[in-house]
Simulated scan of single mutants.
Amino acid sequence: MKQKELFLHADAALRSVLDRFTPEQLAIPVPAEWTRAENPVLRDIIAAHAYDEAWVPDVLAGRTAEDVGDTHAGDLLGDDPIAGYDRLNDLATEAVNGELDPDATVHLSYGDFPLADYLQHVSIYRAFQAWSIAKHLGLAYSLPAPLVDLLWEQVLPQAGDWRAMGVFGPEVDVPADADRETQLLGKTGYWRP
């Protein structure tokens, strides 16, 4: 299933960025639009991603929010936020690597969708957050070429629909000789000259 491959690459990309941070860097401010937290810092973003990772096995198993209850409420990161995130990332990866039916119905906070669509939705979030976090914090980072290719194939054809939903900003012109990653970032509104 191509969405499974997309998820695994996007999830690994996000983890590769988050794993670069030290405990001291977790207090670095991040853009307010990245989270609902007041005066957000990097730890808040990692906590949001940890929460998202924690839900993956439940969603793939067909559980609803009512089934899960408050299992994922509270601080999922503990005293070692990166290790806490990595633990949940490992569980999500294990769940996605299992036997999956792409047409199975999963239950999300915004409706019921085929499992393959869910994987695509959360992959978009992970991939572009990896890039955004790295760029915001000045890390030398590029999306891995296989992930760029998967996003180009699976997401770019629907960029207009995603843009209409507010997921992507307006398309940004990029240099004529731009590489494929830059072209992708331009078409999805992320690239900045």
Rank of each mutant, 00 (worst) to 15 (best):
D70A: 14
L108I: 09
S142P: 00
E38D: 15
D75G: 10
V172E: 01
R87K: 14
L76G: 03
G169S: 07
P146D: 02
E24I: 04
D58T: 09
D44Y: 02
G166Y: 00
P102L: 11
P40I: 03
V172T: 03
E153R: 14
N97V: 02
E33W: 07
G62T: 04
H9F: 12
L143S: 02
G69S: 03
D117Q: 13
D52H: 08
D58G: 08
E181Y: 02
P31S: 11
L6I: 06
D177C: 09
V96M: 04
V174Q: 05
H49S: 05
V172C: 02
A37R: 04
G98L: 08
L108V: 06
Y141P: 11
L91G: 03
G74V: 07
L91D: 08
A140I: 07
A178I: 09
R20K: 15
Q154E: 03
V30L: 03
E53K: 13
F128S: 00
A130C: 14
G189M: 08
A164N: 10
W55P: 07
A10L: 08
A10H: 06
H136T: 14
D86K: 11
S132I: 06
H9E: 15
K135E: 12
T22K: 12
Q154T: 00
G74T: 11
D52V: 10
A37S: 13
E94F: 09
